[in-house]
Design a protein around this nucleic acid. Structure first.
Lengths: 201, 201
DNA sequence: CGTTTTCTTGAATATGATCAAAACTCGTGG
DNA sequence: CCACGAGTTTTGATCATATTCAAGAAAACG
Protein backbone atom coordinates (compact mmCIF):
# COMPACT_ATOMS: atom_id res chain seq x y z
CA UNK A 1 0.00 0.00 0.00
CA UNK A 2 2.40 2.62 1.19
CA UNK A 3 5.89 2.81 -0.17
CA UNK A 4 7.63 2.99 3.17
CA UNK A 5 8.41 -0.69 3.23
CA UNK A 6 9.34 -2.79 0.28
CA UNK A 7 11.15 -5.96 -0.51
CA UNK A 8 13.26 -6.23 -3.65
CA UNK A 9 15.28 -8.80 -5.48
CA UNK A 10 18.41 -7.31 -7.00
CA UNK A 11 20.87 -8.50 -9.61
CA UNK A 12 24.60 -8.40 -8.88
CA UNK A 13 26.03 -4.93 -9.36
CA UNK A 14 22.80 -3.12 -8.53
CA UNK A 15 23.24 0.21 -6.77
CA UNK A 16 21.02 0.71 -3.72
CA UNK A 17 22.26 4.19 -3.02
CA UNK A 18 25.27 6.35 -3.59
CA UNK A 19 27.63 8.09 -1.22
CA UNK A 20 26.39 11.65 -0.75
CA UNK A 21 22.85 10.85 -1.85
CA UNK A 22 19.92 11.86 0.31
CA UNK A 23 19.15 9.13 2.84
CA UNK A 24 15.49 8.23 2.69
CA UNK A 25 15.57 4.65 3.84
CA UNK A 26 17.65 1.99 5.47
CA UNK A 27 17.93 -1.67 4.63
CA UNK A 28 17.76 -5.20 5.91
CA UNK A 29 19.43 -8.00 3.97
CA UNK A 30 17.28 -11.09 3.44
CA UNK A 31 19.82 -12.90 1.34
CA UNK A 32 22.83 -12.21 -0.83
CA UNK A 33 25.78 -9.92 -0.28
CA UNK A 34 26.07 -6.14 -0.26
CA UNK A 35 29.27 -4.11 -0.30
CA UNK A 36 29.45 -0.69 1.27
CA UNK A 37 32.13 1.33 -0.44
CA UNK A 38 33.68 4.70 -0.12
CA UNK A 39 34.97 6.60 -3.13
CA UNK A 40 37.89 8.97 -3.01
CA UNK A 41 38.07 12.14 -5.08
CA UNK A 42 40.09 10.45 -7.80
CA UNK A 43 37.72 7.55 -8.11
CA UNK A 44 39.50 4.92 -6.04
CA UNK A 45 37.11 2.65 -4.23
CA UNK A 46 37.52 1.16 -0.80
CA UNK A 47 35.17 -1.49 0.59
CA UNK A 48 34.27 -0.45 4.11
CA UNK A 49 31.98 -3.31 5.02
CA UNK A 50 30.35 -6.40 3.62
CA UNK A 51 26.77 -7.03 4.67
CA UNK A 52 25.28 -10.52 4.59
CA UNK A 53 22.03 -12.26 5.44
CA UNK A 54 20.46 -10.77 8.56
CA UNK A 55 22.52 -7.60 8.49
CA UNK A 56 21.17 -4.08 8.40
CA UNK A 57 22.84 -1.00 7.06
CA UNK A 58 22.42 2.75 6.70
CA UNK A 59 20.28 2.75 9.80
CA UNK A 60 22.68 5.15 11.45
CA UNK A 61 22.18 7.90 8.94
CA UNK A 62 18.51 8.33 9.75
CA UNK A 63 19.34 10.25 12.88
CA UNK A 64 21.71 12.77 11.48
CA UNK A 65 20.74 16.31 10.64
CA UNK A 66 22.10 16.15 7.11
CA UNK A 67 20.77 12.84 6.00
CA UNK A 68 23.29 11.81 3.39
CA UNK A 69 24.64 8.33 2.90
CA UNK A 70 28.32 8.20 3.84
CA UNK A 71 28.90 5.17 1.62
CA UNK A 72 27.71 3.63 -1.62
CA UNK A 73 25.81 0.33 -1.44
CA UNK A 74 26.12 -2.15 -4.29
CA UNK A 75 25.08 -5.79 -4.47
CA UNK A 76 27.89 -8.27 -5.01
CA UNK A 77 25.71 -11.34 -5.44
CA UNK A 78 22.06 -11.50 -6.32
CA UNK A 79 20.33 -10.26 -3.18
CA UNK A 80 16.97 -9.75 -1.58
CA UNK A 81 16.71 -6.68 0.62
CA UNK A 82 13.98 -5.11 2.68
CA UNK A 83 13.91 -1.32 2.59
CA UNK A 84 12.31 0.75 5.31
CA UNK A 85 11.61 4.45 5.05
CA UNK A 86 12.91 6.94 7.53
CA UNK A 87 9.31 7.69 8.60
CA UNK A 88 8.49 4.05 9.16
CA UNK A 89 11.51 3.57 11.36
CA UNK A 90 10.52 6.52 13.53
CA UNK A 91 7.06 5.00 13.91
CA UNK A 92 8.56 1.73 14.98
CA UNK A 93 10.79 3.49 17.45
CA UNK A 94 7.81 5.29 18.94
CA UNK A 95 5.90 2.03 19.32
CA UNK A 96 8.69 0.02 20.79
CA UNK A 97 10.73 1.65 23.51
CA UNK A 98 13.30 -1.10 23.49
CA UNK A 99 14.01 -0.82 19.81
CA UNK A 100 16.02 2.36 20.31
CA UNK A 101 18.20 0.60 22.83
CA UNK A 102 18.69 -2.35 20.53
CA UNK A 103 19.70 0.00 17.75
CA UNK A 104 22.11 1.79 20.04
CA UNK A 105 23.60 -1.60 20.77
CA UNK A 106 23.92 -2.40 17.08
CA UNK A 107 25.60 0.90 16.36
CA UNK A 108 27.97 0.43 19.26
CA UNK A 109 29.10 -2.90 17.88
CA UNK A 110 29.56 -1.30 14.50
CA UNK A 111 31.60 1.54 15.96
CA UNK A 112 33.72 -0.89 17.86
CA UNK A 113 34.50 -2.71 14.65
CA UNK A 114 35.40 0.54 12.90
CA UNK A 115 37.75 1.53 15.70
CA UNK A 116 39.42 -1.86 15.45
CA UNK A 117 39.78 -1.33 11.74
CA UNK A 118 41.50 2.00 12.20
CA UNK A 119 43.88 0.48 14.70
CA UNK A 120 44.55 -2.37 12.34
CA UNK A 121 45.27 -0.05 9.43
CA UNK A 122 47.68 2.19 11.28
CA UNK A 123 49.35 -0.22 13.66
CA UNK A 124 49.59 -3.47 11.72
CA UNK A 125 50.90 -4.50 8.33
CA UNK A 126 48.97 -6.20 5.55
CA UNK A 127 50.15 -9.64 6.55
CA UNK A 128 48.72 -9.22 10.00
CA UNK A 129 45.40 -7.99 8.68
CA UNK A 130 45.05 -10.95 6.36
CA UNK A 131 45.83 -13.51 9.05
CA UNK A 132 43.57 -11.67 11.45
CA UNK A 133 40.77 -11.93 8.91
CA UNK A 134 41.25 -15.68 8.44
CA UNK A 135 41.43 -16.37 12.14
CA UNK A 136 38.42 -14.16 12.80
CA UNK A 137 36.30 -15.87 10.17
CA UNK A 138 37.20 -19.28 11.58
CA UNK A 139 36.27 -18.23 15.08
CA UNK A 140 32.91 -16.95 13.84
CA UNK A 141 32.04 -20.13 12.00
CA UNK A 142 33.63 -22.46 14.52
CA UNK A 143 35.10 -24.26 11.55
CA UNK A 144 38.68 -24.64 10.40
CA UNK A 145 37.92 -23.56 6.87
CA UNK A 146 36.23 -20.61 5.28
CA UNK A 147 34.78 -19.65 1.92
CA UNK A 148 35.67 -16.37 0.28
CA UNK A 149 32.13 -15.35 -0.55
CA UNK A 150 33.19 -12.34 -2.60
CA UNK A 151 35.77 -11.88 -5.36
CA UNK A 152 39.25 -11.71 -3.90
CA UNK A 153 39.71 -8.18 -5.11
CA UNK A 154 36.72 -7.15 -2.95
CA UNK A 155 38.12 -8.90 0.10
CA UNK A 156 41.46 -7.27 -0.57
CA UNK A 157 39.88 -3.84 -0.61
CA UNK A 158 37.96 -4.66 2.54
CA UNK A 159 41.30 -5.46 4.17
CA UNK A 160 42.89 -2.28 2.92
CA UNK A 161 45.30 -3.72 0.40
CA UNK A 162 45.57 -4.20 -3.36
CA UNK A 163 44.58 -7.48 -5.05
CA UNK A 164 48.26 -8.03 -5.89
CA UNK A 165 49.33 -7.81 -2.28
CA UNK A 166 46.48 -10.06 -1.23
CA UNK A 167 47.48 -12.68 -3.74
CA UNK A 168 51.14 -12.60 -2.77
CA UNK A 169 50.42 -12.86 0.94
CA UNK A 170 48.09 -15.81 0.41
CA UNK A 171 50.78 -17.55 -1.62
CA UNK A 172 53.27 -16.98 1.11
CA UNK A 173 51.00 -18.47 3.76
CA UNK A 174 50.48 -21.42 1.48
CA UNK A 175 54.19 -21.85 1.02
CA UNK A 176 54.61 -21.94 4.77
CA UNK A 177 52.03 -24.67 5.06
CA UNK A 178 49.72 -22.55 7.17
CA UNK A 179 46.74 -22.57 4.84
CA UNK A 180 45.44 -24.46 1.84
CA UNK A 181 43.53 -22.82 -1.00
CA UNK A 182 41.11 -24.57 -3.35
CA UNK A 183 39.15 -22.15 -5.44
CA UNK A 184 37.40 -19.90 -2.98
CA UNK A 185 37.81 -22.22 -0.03
CA UNK A 186 40.57 -21.51 2.43
CA UNK A 187 41.47 -24.29 4.83
CA UNK A 188 43.54 -23.51 7.86
CA UNK A 189 46.29 -26.07 8.21
CA UNK A 190 47.92 -24.81 11.36
CA UNK A 191 45.65 -22.53 13.32
CA UNK A 192 47.93 -22.25 16.32
CA UNK A 193 50.90 -21.14 14.30
CA UNK A 194 48.65 -18.70 12.46
CA UNK A 195 47.31 -17.29 15.71
CA UNK A 196 50.82 -16.92 17.03
CA UNK A 197 51.52 -14.33 14.36
CA UNK A 198 48.90 -12.03 15.78
CA UNK A 199 50.52 -11.78 19.18
CA UNK A 200 54.24 -12.09 18.59
CA UNK A 201 56.30 -10.75 15.67
CA UNK B 1 25.10 11.10 47.63
CA UNK B 2 25.02 8.38 45.03
CA UNK B 3 28.08 7.64 43.03
CA UNK B 4 26.35 7.49 39.70
CA UNK B 5 27.23 11.04 38.78
CA UNK B 6 30.41 12.81 39.67
CA UNK B 7 32.51 15.69 38.49
CA UNK B 8 36.28 15.48 38.67
CA UNK B 9 39.26 17.68 37.98
CA UNK B 10 42.14 15.71 36.49
CA UNK B 11 45.83 16.41 36.01
CA UNK B 12 47.44 15.83 32.61
CA UNK B 13 48.19 12.18 32.00
CA UNK B 14 45.39 10.86 34.20
CA UNK B 15 43.82 7.63 33.02
CA UNK B 16 40.02 7.61 32.99
CA UNK B 17 39.76 4.05 31.81
CA UNK B 18 41.70 1.46 29.89
CA UNK B 19 40.97 -0.43 26.73
CA UNK B 20 39.42 -3.76 27.68
CA UNK B 21 38.30 -2.56 31.11
CA UNK B 22 34.72 -3.05 32.21
CA UNK B 23 32.62 -0.10 31.12
CA UNK B 24 30.69 1.25 34.06
CA UNK B 25 30.26 4.87 33.07
CA UNK B 26 30.55 7.31 30.25
CA UNK B 27 31.85 10.85 30.28
CA UNK B 28 31.16 14.45 29.42
CA UNK B 29 34.05 16.89 29.05
CA UNK B 30 33.59 20.20 30.86
CA UNK B 31 37.01 21.53 29.97
CA UNK B 32 40.43 20.33 28.94
CA UNK B 33 41.42 17.71 26.42
CA UNK B 34 41.11 13.93 26.42
CA UNK B 35 42.77 11.51 24.05
CA UNK B 36 41.18 8.20 23.20
CA UNK B 37 43.87 5.74 22.23
CA UNK B 38 44.09 2.22 21.01
CA UNK B 39 46.99 -0.01 21.92
CA UNK B 40 48.31 -2.75 19.68
CA UNK B 41 49.64 -6.04 20.99
CA UNK B 42 53.23 -4.82 20.91
CA UNK B 43 52.44 -1.64 22.81
CA UNK B 44 52.20 0.85 19.96
CA UNK B 45 49.64 3.53 20.63
CA UNK B 46 47.36 5.18 18.15
CA UNK B 47 45.21 8.20 18.99
CA UNK B 48 41.73 7.51 17.66
CA UNK B 49 40.02 10.68 18.73
CA UNK B 50 40.56 13.88 20.67
CA UNK B 51 37.69 15.03 22.85
CA UNK B 52 37.32 18.65 23.85
CA UNK B 53 34.93 20.85 25.82
CA UNK B 54 31.35 19.77 25.28
CA UNK B 55 32.22 16.37 23.91
CA UNK B 56 31.06 13.05 25.28
CA UNK B 57 32.72 9.70 24.96
CA UNK B 58 32.28 6.03 25.75
CA UNK B 59 28.53 6.48 25.61
CA UNK B 60 28.33 3.89 22.85
CA UNK B 61 29.69 1.10 24.97
CA UNK B 62 26.81 1.20 27.40
CA UNK B 63 24.56 -0.59 24.98
CA UNK B 64 26.75 -3.50 24.12
CA UNK B 65 26.39 -6.90 25.66
CA UNK B 66 30.02 -7.17 26.66
CA UNK B 67 30.57 -3.78 28.19
CA UNK B 68 34.26 -3.28 27.67
CA UNK B 69 35.90 -0.03 26.67
CA UNK B 70 37.34 -0.32 23.17
CA UNK B 71 39.83 2.48 23.82
CA UNK B 72 41.91 3.96 26.60
CA UNK B 73 41.07 7.49 27.78
CA UNK B 74 43.84 9.73 29.09
CA UNK B 75 43.84 13.46 29.78
CA UNK B 76 46.24 15.51 27.68
CA UNK B 77 45.70 18.82 29.47
CA UNK B 78 44.27 19.41 32.91
CA UNK B 79 40.59 18.59 32.46
CA UNK B 80 37.26 18.62 34.22
CA UNK B 81 34.97 15.74 33.32
CA UNK B 82 31.52 14.66 34.36
CA UNK B 83 31.07 10.92 34.74
CA UNK B 84 27.68 9.23 34.53
CA UNK B 85 26.99 5.66 35.48
CA UNK B 86 25.46 3.16 33.15
CA UNK B 87 22.42 2.94 35.42
CA UNK B 88 21.94 6.69 35.49
CA UNK B 89 22.01 6.89 31.72
CA UNK B 90 19.33 4.24 31.40
CA UNK B 91 17.18 6.20 33.85
CA UNK B 92 17.61 9.32 31.78
CA UNK B 93 16.73 7.42 28.64
CA UNK B 94 13.56 6.11 30.25
CA UNK B 95 12.54 9.61 31.33
CA UNK B 96 13.24 11.34 28.07
CA UNK B 97 12.08 9.61 24.92
CA UNK B 98 13.94 12.02 22.70
CA UNK B 99 17.26 11.42 24.36
CA UNK B 100 17.66 8.05 22.67
CA UNK B 101 17.15 9.68 19.29
CA UNK B 102 19.66 12.39 20.10
CA UNK B 103 22.16 9.79 21.11
CA UNK B 104 21.54 7.84 17.95
CA UNK B 105 22.27 11.06 16.10
CA UNK B 106 25.50 11.56 18.01
CA UNK B 107 26.65 8.04 17.32
CA UNK B 108 25.80 8.38 13.65
CA UNK B 109 27.99 11.45 13.36
CA UNK B 110 30.75 9.60 15.13
CA UNK B 111 30.42 6.63 12.80
CA UNK B 112 30.47 8.90 9.80
CA UNK B 113 33.73 10.37 11.01
CA UNK B 114 35.23 6.92 11.54
CA UNK B 115 34.27 5.84 8.05
CA UNK B 116 35.90 8.95 6.66
CA UNK B 117 38.99 8.14 8.63
CA UNK B 118 39.20 4.65 7.20
CA UNK B 119 38.82 6.00 3.70
CA UNK B 120 41.46 8.59 4.41
CA UNK B 121 43.90 6.00 5.74
CA UNK B 122 43.56 3.60 2.88
CA UNK B 123 42.96 5.89 -0.07
CA UNK B 124 45.08 8.95 0.69
CA UNK B 125 48.69 9.58 1.61
CA UNK B 126 49.99 11.31 4.71
CA UNK B 127 50.33 14.67 2.92
CA UNK B 128 46.69 14.62 2.01
CA UNK B 129 45.62 13.77 5.54
CA UNK B 130 47.63 16.61 7.00
CA UNK B 131 46.29 19.20 4.58
CA UNK B 132 42.81 17.84 5.06
CA UNK B 133 43.21 18.31 8.79
CA UNK B 134 44.35 21.91 8.44
CA UNK B 135 41.60 22.81 6.01
CA UNK B 136 39.00 21.05 8.16
CA UNK B 137 40.06 22.88 11.31
CA UNK B 138 39.92 26.20 9.50
CA UNK B 139 36.45 25.52 8.21
CA UNK B 140 35.27 24.62 11.70
CA UNK B 141 36.63 27.76 13.29
CA UNK B 142 35.87 30.01 10.34
CA UNK B 143 39.33 31.41 10.85
CA UNK B 144 42.39 31.25 8.67
CA UNK B 145 44.63 30.07 11.47
CA UNK B 146 44.52 27.28 14.00
CA UNK B 147 46.22 26.34 17.23
CA UNK B 148 47.61 22.85 17.76
CA UNK B 149 46.07 22.27 21.17
CA UNK B 150 47.95 19.03 21.75
CA UNK B 151 51.62 18.06 21.40
CA UNK B 152 52.47 17.49 17.76
CA UNK B 153 53.25 13.87 18.36
CA UNK B 154 49.63 13.39 19.50
CA UNK B 155 48.26 15.13 16.44
CA UNK B 156 50.55 13.04 14.29
CA UNK B 157 49.21 9.85 15.80
CA UNK B 158 45.65 11.10 15.38
CA UNK B 159 46.45 11.56 11.69
CA UNK B 160 47.98 8.12 11.42
CA UNK B 161 51.62 9.07 10.92
CA UNK B 162 54.83 9.28 12.92
CA UNK B 163 56.01 12.56 14.49
CA UNK B 164 58.91 12.55 12.03
CA UNK B 165 56.65 12.40 9.02
CA UNK B 166 54.41 15.07 10.50
CA UNK B 167 57.34 17.38 11.03
CA UNK B 168 58.72 16.86 7.55
CA UNK B 169 55.37 17.45 5.86
CA UNK B 170 54.79 20.65 7.81
CA UNK B 171 58.24 21.87 6.78
CA UNK B 172 57.45 21.14 3.19
CA UNK B 173 54.19 23.09 3.30
CA UNK B 174 56.09 25.95 4.89
CA UNK B 175 58.70 25.86 2.19
CA UNK B 176 55.97 26.10 -0.42
CA UNK B 177 54.58 29.19 1.26
CA UNK B 178 51.26 27.51 1.99
CA UNK B 179 51.35 27.79 5.76
CA UNK B 180 53.21 29.64 8.48
CA UNK B 181 54.13 28.11 11.81
CA UNK B 182 54.79 30.02 15.04
CA UNK B 183 54.98 27.72 18.02
CA UNK B 184 51.69 25.90 18.08
CA UNK B 185 49.88 28.36 15.81
CA UNK B 186 49.47 27.42 12.18
CA UNK B 187 48.47 30.20 9.83
CA UNK B 188 47.18 29.34 6.41
CA UNK B 189 48.85 31.54 3.84
CA UNK B 190 47.16 30.24 0.72
CA UNK B 191 43.94 28.41 1.51
CA UNK B 192 42.88 28.01 -2.11
CA UNK B 193 46.10 26.39 -3.16
CA UNK B 194 45.92 24.17 -0.09
CA UNK B 195 42.36 23.14 -0.89
CA UNK B 196 43.34 22.41 -4.46
CA UNK B 197 45.56 19.58 -3.22
CA UNK B 198 42.58 17.75 -1.81
CA UNK B 199 40.81 17.51 -5.14
CA UNK B 200 43.53 17.20 -7.74
CA UNK B 201 46.88 15.38 -7.53
C1' DC C 1 34.87 -21.05 -28.20
C1' DG C 2 35.95 -16.01 -28.00
C1' DT C 3 35.70 -12.29 -24.85
C1' DT C 4 36.01 -10.14 -20.63
C1' DT C 5 37.19 -9.99 -16.02
C1' DT C 6 39.83 -11.74 -12.34
C1' DC C 7 43.94 -13.57 -10.52
C1' DT C 8 48.79 -14.24 -10.33
C1' DT C 9 53.64 -13.16 -10.90
C1' DG C 10 57.61 -10.16 -11.78
C1' DA C 11 60.35 -5.87 -11.62
C1' DA C 12 60.81 -1.20 -10.40
C1' DT C 13 59.37 2.48 -7.50
C1' DA C 14 57.88 5.32 -3.71
C1' DT C 15 56.06 6.44 0.51
C1' DG C 16 56.56 6.38 5.05
C1' DA C 17 58.90 3.95 9.05
C1' DT C 18 62.90 3.32 11.71
C1' DC C 19 67.15 4.48 13.84
C1' DA C 20 70.12 7.93 15.46
C1' DA C 21 71.51 12.32 16.87
C1' DA C 22 71.21 17.15 17.34
C1' DA C 23 68.29 21.39 18.55
C1' DC C 24 64.87 23.10 21.11
C1' DT C 25 61.37 23.71 25.13
C1' DC C 26 60.23 23.97 29.59
C1' DG C 27 60.04 23.30 34.43
C1' DT C 28 62.99 22.93 38.61
C1' DG C 29 66.39 23.86 41.73
C1' DG C 30 71.00 25.62 42.76
C1' DC D 1 69.60 33.89 36.42
C1' DC D 2 71.62 29.99 34.80
C1' DA D 3 72.32 25.02 34.71
C1' DC D 4 70.38 20.74 34.39
C1' DG D 5 67.41 17.01 32.77
C1' DA D 6 63.27 15.11 30.70
C1' DG D 7 60.49 15.32 26.89
C1' DT D 8 59.52 16.97 22.34
C1' DT D 9 60.70 18.30 17.85
C1' DT D 10 63.56 18.50 13.94
C1' DT D 11 66.76 16.68 10.55
C1' DG D 12 69.43 13.15 8.19
C1' DA D 13 70.34 8.46 6.35
C1' DT D 14 68.78 4.05 5.60
C1' DC D 15 65.43 0.55 4.99
C1' DA D 16 61.03 -2.07 4.31
C1' DT D 17 56.55 -2.62 2.94
C1' DA D 18 53.25 -2.24 -0.19
C1' DT D 19 51.96 0.13 -4.57
C1' DT D 20 52.32 0.62 -9.40
C1' DC D 21 52.94 -0.90 -13.94
C1' DA D 22 53.01 -4.59 -17.02
C1' DA D 23 52.08 -8.98 -18.84
C1' DG D 24 50.70 -13.63 -18.73
C1' DA D 25 47.45 -17.43 -16.78
C1' DA D 26 43.10 -18.72 -15.28
C1' DA D 27 38.34 -18.43 -14.64
C1' DA D 28 33.69 -16.77 -15.68
C1' DC D 29 30.31 -15.59 -19.01
C1' DG D 30 27.65 -15.33 -22.91
Amino acid sequence: MTRDMHCTRLDPGAVLFRQGGEARRFYFVESGLIKLTRLSVDGEERVIELIRHGGTFAEAVMFMEHKRYPVTAVTVDESVVLGLSNRRLLDLLAQDGHLALRMLGQLSMRMHALVQEIESLSLHDAGYRLVNYFVGECKRSGSTSLTLDAPKRIIASRLGMTPETFSRLVQRLRGQGLIKLEGAVVTIEDLDRLRARLTAE
